[in-house]
Design a protein around this nucleic acid. Sequence first.
DNA 1: TATGAATGAGCCTTCATTCAT
DNA 2: AATGAATGAAGGCTCATTCAT
Lengths: 207, 207, 207, 207
Amino acid sequence: MDIKGEQSLEQAILEVAEKLFLEKGFALTSTTEIAKEVGCNQALVHYYFRTKDNLFNVIFEQKFKLLFQGIFEMKNTGEMKFQDKLKYIIESHFDLLRKNPGIPALILNELSRRPEQIDTLREKLHELPEKLILELNEELQKEIENGNVREISLIDLMVTILSLNIALFIMLPVVEKALQWDVSQKEFMISHRRAENVDFILKSIRP
Amino acid sequence: MDIKGEQSLEQAILEVAEKLFLEKGFALTSTTEIAKEVGCNQALVHYYFRTKDNLFNVIFEQKFKLLFQGIFEMKNTGEMKFQDKLKYIIESHFDLLRKNPGIPALILNELSRRPEQIDTLREKLHELPEKLILELNEELQKEIENGNVREISLIDLMVTILSLNIALFIMLPVVEKALQWDVSQKEFMISHRRAENVDFILKSIRP
Amino acid sequence: MDIKGEQSLEQAILEVAEKLFLEKGFALTSTTEIAKEVGCNQALVHYYFRTKDNLFNVIFEQKFKLLFQGIFEMKNTGEMKFQDKLKYIIESHFDLLRKNPGIPALILNELSRRPEQIDTLREKLHELPEKLILELNEELQKEIENGNVREISLIDLMVTILSLNIALFIMLPVVEKALQWDVSQKEFMISHRRAENVDFILKSIRP
Amino acid sequence: MDIKGEQSLEQAILEVAEKLFLEKGFALTSTTEIAKEVGCNQALVHYYFRTKDNLFNVIFEQKFKLLFQGIFEMKNTGEMKFQDKLKYIIESHFDLLRKNPGIPALILNELSRRPEQIDTLREKLHELPEKLILELNEELQKEIENGNVREISLIDLMVTILSLNIALFIMLPVVEKALQWDVSQKEFMISHRRAENVDFILKSIRP
DNA sequence: TATGAATGAGCCTTCATTCAT
DNA sequence: AATGAATGAAGGCTCATTCAT
């Protein structure tokens, strides 16, 4: 079925499962369906992952990590101006979502539907790079003192960034279908909002 | 159980179904469960609504209308300053969500999981009060010309408002559990973000 | 399928299940098989009894009660000689088993295979008619003092009775098949052992 | 794990299988579980024994032989008094069961649950030491003639012995759990019943 | 000899739905 | 209007077994 030479079935299952879980969520995806799409016996799905929950968790944690490890990643931003650094953060986060547009919906959804996974979340959250956050906060305070930025807390700023970026990719599939956009219209909207989000935030924190 | 005060069973089913659908989504809510909670026979759910889909759609459309009809509701705002009008819009929308916090997740979710409902949605969207939108846009252009507001399109402004408000109520259940907030912490956060969203937007559109 | 007019399906399921559970035990009896033999849909078995465990327990407790409530039943034995009373007990117990020959195997088996049911057992055991036991013991002691019966404890005596009676019906199916007995041979053996057990015990307690 | 002291895997499988079959019976023991406990691949079980049935039969026949070949084993009893010989037989049989307490349940169970094995059984039964039986019978008749033993048939006597001994080890696991005995209580009961069975029988055959 | 991969069959259970009453 | 009974379909999972290596 595949064009390139026969990856392992285990990998194939993982990929199909990822696709289906992202498309339809946990409850609406059946192991039977995964197997059918992979082209193998249904029992094989259980052979490799024992339970549907297991399989889901493998994918979930992987995606979860991917999503959160990237938020505060700030490579080579040492000498940047604060505003540029902020722009870089917003855009990095946005690009991460752009590459994985289904993930926010998956996480927000399954997390409220299947609360057991909250624990996983808590653990992972504690792995966030605290040092970077502290540094960023320090920098923000300095900018405020120097009159370059209006009074605002880092946490509020970050929540706003998260909200603007995530909301786009959560709402996009709905709007896309409702307005019957084609791919280019959709891509235009994405690019436009990328700039808009940055602009909106930078404009808002002006002193 | 009361003979007098008893609402009709149909109504009771509707209410229980609404509660459960909002709590757990379509897939995880069974007609059996609805019937059990109502205290009636399982067949009755189908007697009144024929199919589970039907029952869901009744609720879905009702909630959908509620959510969107309120966004552009601007009663008695005739003589307000533009900024005050905007503040009023943001807060009205926010308060609507606050009263119906489960609705955004329901709509965004079920809409991408079960795309058949999109048509209904499109119809409903066309019922939006176009006149109000045009008026608002005119007003915005005037403010921009007069130098009271920076250059920005109405659509971008509205998307940003929607994003900030909706994102909060989508992310809230997760954050609430992850950080183990109690009710008062949660309420504080909601009130805080209500003000913050207004502030953030008004600050951002300064010229 | 039945000759007499259509008992309820629920009852039919119960009867078929009883037959199959007695024949093949819990693990080897499937709800599918029960349904097939009843002539109904498999889901119906679960409609009435929810789970296979449930269905089994209904039968198990029923049989368990039946078996133990009869052991110490001594109607109209007031004026009997001790030996006659003992004979009556042994034969009553034996006849109970004869009417329900599959029960001992079922109980002994499922009780060691599925230890959760031990609790049920304990409860039921506590409902045994303690008063009767005490009376019987008193009588036994008197007989020993009077030199009519050799020194022996009531508990040892009862265990021996239980052992002889139960062992027969546990071993019977094996012997029956191994020696290829026909029904009359089997019935003869049963009657013979009934007398033999009584005889053996009465002979043994002679002073 | 030891390289030297390691028995062959075939042997290891056999031992684990024996343990599990005795513990949980045929139906509740899976080849997967056997393999896991042995620490080898699941396919290996089938490599050595082809089918689960096969594996079971190997163990079953082995245990069956062990159980029945020992009943009439009377080493060095040539010059004994008849009563002593009987005592010896009862105790030997009892001790055999004590060493293999799970076997009776296994045999009685699986034989009625899975009757195919009956043929094997028949063959094995015919290997019983007929000569010994005849000798014993002769001796019994002589004792009866001499007035040392009451009138009784050898077959009835042997069935009673088998019954008393086997019934104990069949009922023990249930009673043990039901009364929550600890090991010492259980061992006391076993020793007590060993003496009691002998006593009971010898007392019963008094003239 | 030994194993990882793969499969078909079966099991228990739940569900939405229908129908006669 | 309301219900108990009944069903077909599907789902997750386990198991004994086979096969290529």
